[in-house]
Design a protein around this nucleic acid. Structure first.
Length: 694
DNA sequence: ACGGATAAGACA
DNA sequence: TTGTCTTAT
């Protein structure tokens, strides 16, 4: 799985910050009387006291471990305080921890590019901050060094017995004859110490950190001195560190690959890997993994810190172990509804707070079949385009489940009535939303042009696609709850004012907050301030964006002219017209522009217009691709075409501002990176889904 | 009758 | 591209 990336020749300063028993800290902040006591967070309570998912360091002293049951924990530590994870809709609700994690991220992202690695871990690229400090205010001869920094652990620093440890650290940091790399790390120490103190002051949470020249080493170091301490890995200490390190301790080697290295290759420590030539490792594990292994044995890891403060997907799931397995379709539907409710709520918050929309809904399930030839078979996961609105998500998820179930049961499946036992059981269910992209912000003529659209009737794909990582404002530093990320959803005076989608009440409720917040005011232009400080991020996200746009384009190959002709003929106008297409295919247009982002990021080449449609008048089927009945019924059609293939007479029919915008897209030379061979896609797209009033 | 709920990424 | 698999916390 791991893939080797070439390590840049530059010496980076990378930190990995890891919250100490995070869920426990969150609960202790809520109930301060628990501070200092052996505490654990458990989820669910019925069965053996619930499962421990976080254990305080006080409790660890008693031998309490994660993955113990509450009852076991009580045995080894009778005084232990067990706090239950909140339950909502019959399932564990982790939102409190998610938002606490966001608090931390917003602080840690202040000094450089920040990657949210999990709910309680981040990577930081502090290279620029460290270089700047080194140039302007070097730690050498700094009279006062932060107490927290002096507490750092520096790998390889020989602290002889009796010597003042802090004094040694001070000397290391101040060392005048250090090489550039160590001086950078010294700056990293100071910066991370300060960040950690800010986290403590502003959130009351402690964390541990590793500081090194790459992510792998930083991650390794952050776990070496916990809790509430930081560890530095000077390059001179790398060999010694890795030489005796058990191979399974390395990230990515804790599973089957690590086992294979041990059992098949006799590799027990990272040092043992050194004797294998790269080619041998590639032979055994493939090109990518082989090279990756060869590199990590030498402490080489080139992975960049992605500038991403927000999760890339949201999921909601629950297990139904053993006897609790769901054995009827109505039971499954009930739980799916609960999961979808939670998911929908989180999607709305994300839209609200981060101005992003998800494009894909996926259902996962685990199932068993009693007595069948292939009871080993896995329940297939299924996905479909994601439509916003709780009811829609529930409906789509249920359809996905049914499609999966039919496939799972297979030929021998027998139809049974009602709640009758049918030979299968669902032991886990989850729904997730992925392909989350920012909805455009800033003024955009197209957004203004197509306004009045209710989100509920819009498939998420109906918004113009922005590549991941390209955000409004300065992404790296303000992605999280950015106050700048205002979206202009057009208000009144819609050009199609008379076509207001009819929503059911629930769905209106679902979206009301998102809509109200997004409806105020337009941001006329991109302010210089919002552009400052983003250069590194833009560069960093370039490749991703390119890949994404290419993918989108590839997906939507189509025959515009043919379709256009057909549709137009159907309408009997005889004149090809984008406007006609919009009107006839989507009574509730919504769209917006990529152009601001494209210009800002110096991305994009030839724009590509895409129009998607759903066939009307048929029952909606969310299935895509592999569904057994996705052909010919209600399947969405997607068209796209190159802008430069657009008939100019069609262009003429668009309002001037739209024409201007499209023309801007078609001038790639202004902002196209020279090495960019991929064609870029843009979508002025929308499509509607028939609303079923439920 | 289990670690549960979530994530991310690689690969076919 | 979807679906599967691996890894991690």
């Amino acid at each position: 799985m791991p893939v080797a990336k070439p390590e840049s020749s530059d010496s980076r300063v990378i930190a990995h910050v890891d919250m100490d028993c995070f869920y426990v800290q969150v609960e202790q902040r809520k109930q301060p009387q628990l501070r200092g006591l052996p505490t654990a967070v458990v989820q669910y309570n019925e069965w053996k006291g619930g499962a421990l998912i976080a254990v305080s360091y006080e409790a660890r002293k008693f031998g309490v471990k994660r993955s113990m049951r509450g009852a076991e924990a009580k045995e080894v530590c009778p005084q232990i305080q067990l706090v239950q994870v909140p339950v909502a809709r019959g399932k564990a609700d982790l939102n409190g921890y998610r938002s606490a994690g966001s608090e931390v991220v917003s602080i840690l992202s202040r000094r450089g590019r920040c990657e949210r690695a999990s709910i309680d871990e981040v990577y930081l690229d502090l290279t620029d901050a460290a270089e700047t400090m080194l140039a302007e205010n070097p730690p050498q001869n700094m009279e006062k060094i932060d107490e927290e920094a002096l507490m750092s652990h520096i790998l390889g620093l020989n602290n002889e017995d009796g010597s003042d440890v802090k004094e040694n650290v001070r000397e290391w940091i101040n060392r005048h004859n250090a090489d550039h790399r160590d001086k950078l790390l010294a700056c990293g120490i100071l910066i991370v110490a300060e960040l950690r103190m800010q986290v403590l002051k502003e959130t009351e949470f402690t964390c541990s950190a590793g500081i090194a020249h790459n992510k792998m080493l930083a991650k390794l170091a952050s776990g070496m001195n916990k809790p509430a301490q930081q560890t530095v890995v000077p390059s001179s200490s790398v060999n010694g560190l890795l030489n005796t390190l058990p191979i399974r301790k390395m990230k990515q080697l804790g599973g089957k690959l690590g086992i294979s290295l041990q059992t098949d290759m006799g590799v027990n420590t990272v040092g043992d890997l050194l004797q294998f030539p790269e080619e041998k490792l590639q032979e055994r594990y493939g090109i990518n993994t082989g090279t990756w292994l060869w590199n990590i044995a030498r402490g080489i890891s080139g992975e960049a810190v992605e500038g991403r403060l927000l999760p890339k997907s949201h999921g909601s799931g629950k297990t139904f172990p053993g006897p609790r397995a769901l054995k009827t379709v109505p039971a499954v539907q009930h739980w799916l509804n609960q999961l979808c409710e939670e998911l929908s709520e989180r999607l709305c918050s994300d839209l609200d707070q981060n101005k992003r929309m998800a494009h894909t809904l996926t259902l996962h399930a685990r199932a068993y079949k009693s007595s069948d030839s292939d009871s080993q078979k896995k329940f297939p996961s299924k996905s479909c385009p994601l439509r916003y609105g709780t009811g829609k998500i529930q409906e789509d998820a249920f359809n996905l489940f049914q499609a999966g179930l039919r496939e799972y049961i297979g030929f021998y499946g027998v139809k049974t009535q009602g709640s009758q036992y049918s030979g299968w059981g669902i032991t886990s269910l989850s729904v997730s939303a992925s392909k989350i992209v920012p909805i455009p912000s800033g003024t955009c003529s197209i957004a203004k042009y197509f306004h009045g659209q209710s989100l509920d009737n819009v498939n998420a794909e109906a918004t113009l696609l922005l590549p991941p990582g390209v955000h409004s404002g300065s992404e790296c530093y303000s992605e999280l709850n950015s106050p700048k990320a205002e979206v202009d959803f057009p208000k009144e005076e819609s050009w199609i004012e008379d076509t207001v989608p009819d929503l059911d009440l629930q769905e209106q409720k679902d979206l009301s907050s998102s809509l109200s917040k997004t409806q105020d005011g337009f941001t006329q232009d991109i302010s210089p301030s919002s552009l400052s400080g983003t250069e590194g991020c833009l560069e960093q996200n370039q490749n991703k964006q390119e890949r994404y746009m290419t993918k989108v384009e590839g997906q939507f190959k189509s025959e515009y002219k043919e379709r256009k002709g057909k549709r137009v003929k159907d309408k009997g106008t005889g004149t090809p017209s984008i406007l006609e297409l919009f009107k006839s295919y989507n009574p509730y247009p919504f769209g917006s522009s990529l152009s601001q982002e494209l210009k800002k990021t110096a991305q994009g080449t030839d724009a590509r217009l895409t129009i998607e449609e759903n066939e009307v008048g048929k029952e909606e089927k969310p299935m895509h691709g592999s569904s057994s009945r996705d052909e010919g019924d209600g399947r969405r059609e997607v068209w796209s075409y190159n802008i430069d293939e657009i008939d100019p007479t069609v262009m003429d029919e668009l309002p001037q501002e739209i024409q201007d915008e499209i023309k801007a897209w078609v001038q790639p030379h202004k902002w196209r990176p020279y090495n960019n061979t991929a064609r870029r896609g843009c979508k002025i797209s929308h499509y509607f889904s028939p609303t079923k009033n439920s």
